[in-house]
């Protein structure tokens, strides 16, 4: 069983700020991390490998050459193989073109289960995983909190607003992981040295161009344009009313609403 985990290297948004003038992310000096949902996906894949003899874990990332360190981290956690999809032609992609690019590469790489994170903390779109599934014509289960394998099926516990769904899905399939899916293990000291001794396979445009219809990847394959991004302004300070009984409180709120002609 070949488990493929798609990961994205993202800026650690707990340390990110927006440039107040340009509204772009200030990336200088911000550490890069594996997107948390994706990292849970790696952990889930490693546990599936441990529970299913003969299974392998391949980690795939699309990004600039610097994404190498994210793949090394995945190897140091215990992944068997890492592949980087990288090339200028893939740059400037929106989620559609990204999904197309990764799906094309996955056809070449091969898979039984594809695990992606639910969404990345930099864009928060939650679109790429489902788009890969659609492009590959695979059944997909999102928001996975637990995955196990039974024969040729994956049994997935899917988080819902007020309940769980237990879904039986035939492999090959795609599952999107929540960060609650599995607490990621740490790398080990020697695992890091081993990760750097391994080769990371790079798939460039030349390796993959046959997989794509013309104009479907990179900037030209991206119908989305970001018109503007901005930081939400902090709301004005509210009024705090204290020491009122319930009836007084209700009356005070009604008076305020009335005063502003809202009721």
């Amino acid at each position: 069983m070949k488990i493929v985990v798609c990961i994205k290297q993202v800026p650690d948004t707990t340390e990110v700020r927006l440039d107040p003038k340009t509204n772009n992310l200030i990336r200088d000096g911000v550490p890069s991390i594996i997107n948390p949902d994706d990292k849970a996906g790696i952990e889930a894949a490693l546990r599936l490998r441990e529970a299913n003899e003969g299974a392998t874990v391949t980690v795939v990332s699309m990004g600039p050459p610097q994404a190498d360190v994210a793949l090394r981290e995945a190897l140091a956690m215990g992944a068997d193989e890492a592949i980087l999809i990288s090339g200028r032609e893939f740059g400037g992609a929106d989620t559609l073109a990204t999904g197309t690019t990764i799906a094309g590469a996955l056809k070449k790489i091969g898979y039984d289960i594809i695990i992606t994170g639910r969404q990345a903390i930099d864009g928060d779109t939650a679109q790429v995983g489902p788009q890969i599934a659609e492009q590959l014509g695979l059944p997909q289960v999102g928001y996975a909190e637990d995955i196990r394998i039974e024969g040729e099926y994956a049994i997935v516990k899917r988080q819902y607003d007020d309940c769980y769904h237990i879904i039986k899905v035939k492999m090959p399939c795609l599952i999107t992981a929540l960060s609650q899916l599995a607490e990621p293990r740490y790398m080990t000291v020697h695992g890091i040295a081993d990760a750097y001794a391994k080769e990371i396979k790079v798939l460039g445009y030349e390796d993959l161009k046959d997989m794509y219809a013309e104009g479907t990847i990179g900037r030209t394959g991206s119908p989305t344009n970001v018109a503007e991004s901005f930081t939400k302004q902090a709301k004005a300070k509210g009024t705090l009313l204290t020491g009122l009984t319930v009836d007084e409180a209700v009356q005070a709120i009604v008076d305020k609403l009335d005063e502003r002609h809202l009721i």
Partner: peptide
Amino acid sequence: NKTQLLQRELFRKFA
């Protein structure tokens, strides 16, 4: 080197 940098990352995160 790269190995040492990632190892420092591990030690730092764990700490």
